[in-house]
Nucleic acid binder design. Sequence first.
DNA 1: ATTACGTAAATTGTATACAATATAACACCT
DNA 2: AGGTGTTATATTGTATACAATTTACGTAAT
Lengths: 208, 208
Amino acid sequence: MRGLIAGLLRGEWRGGARLTEAEAVEKFGVSRTPVREALLELQGLGLVELRRNCGAVFLPFGPNELHEIYAVRSLLEVEAARLAAGKIGKESLDSLIAAFTRIRDSGGVDPDWEHDRTLHRVIAEASGNHRLSSEISRYGDLIQSVREIVGERDYGIHEMTADEHLSILKAIGENDSGAAAAAMKLHLEQASDSAAAAAELMRTTAKH
Amino acid sequence: MRGLIAGLLRGEWRGGARLTEAEAVEKFGVSRTPVREALLELQGLGLVELRRNCGAVFLPFGPNELHEIYAVRSLLEVEAARLAAGKIGKESLDSLIAAFTRIRDSGGVDPDWEHDRTLHRVIAEASGNHRLSSEISRYGDLIQSVREIVGERDYGIHEMTADEHLSILKAIGENDSGAAAAAMKLHLEQASDSAAAAAELMRTTAKH
DNA sequence: ATTACGTAAATTGTATACAATATAACACCT
DNA sequence: AGGTGTTATATTGTATACAATTTACGTAAT
């Protein structure tokens, strides 16, 4: 079923397009049960809208929608960064700092956003609020899904992103809540613009 | 299926208890398909944890969990109040103010939290951020579910709640973002304590 | 010509049967 | 006696058949 969601995301996502359960069954070669569960899951993430007897409508993801998503994500993660200040163990912090320093200096690429997701997960868990951490994890899934849809990659912005990550970690290590929150806010504003640009790029290239 | 969720919520919610799909089928007299969808929905709200081949575990809801939930809710709704300042139409605002003034002065009771939910919905929609509004709506469902679980009622706190609502509306009407955010924050802190107290009461009375 | 009604088609909601997988118990080996 | 492998059972994941509901179309009446 998890693979079904990935398949739906990878297929071309025309905003407003409708897909009935029967069409999805034919397209993916599975039965209606996993199709229904996958669509309900996507509805839970706010990616599709399920209308009775009308099929699932794929919601559009343009720059505006991405800015909205990142605005909510920012509320959650900025608070998590504030709460996590001074609460991440030294060894864990050092290993994260080493990883991002290496990435920044080597100019390496992280196509699956592996380190990025690890960083945000560690900060969320260090907040001490399980519910907040769980919501951030859910939004992480959403962000990853949207990245699939808009085809966002990290090429070109990687050194800058690593720097932003290091600023957040530095503030957390120094137990500076305000600085941690501010650094996270700035980082997510950059990420928001980057994602919106990817969406705009997809929109324009899909025109012809 | 919606009724199934209500049934699961109304049944005694012992934190940590496990319920297999087969048991739910026997208990509610429906087939596994709607049971599965209901459990997946509850998982999406973070009310149960689904472990493969182990049944669904009912997560506990004590004072600590409720404070966590309300902390997240506060992040969302405080921002919504800030954004909604000056954006609610006069007629809509006046009708809300009239309703809560009447409630406050008459000492009436709103057992299903009808007006409360309307107020928070109107503010969320006025924020202009559809995604934020959608998340607040989702948290409204969660809050309502938790109220069912812990048996929270609004008796006794109603005049105070109405006053808090009026403060929020006043600030929004005066286009004062800061005051609107502060009033909403205060209101949700009160609500958080009230919900936590209800959870504590349930815990202690369930002891014997 | 337009509207109302009825029927048929399509789509979702539900039930049940079957397959896959994980847990647990039990026997056997060391 | 303790550990390991195997088998049996329990539970979830999937497929298919059926019921209910809704939409759309066609026909007839005004």
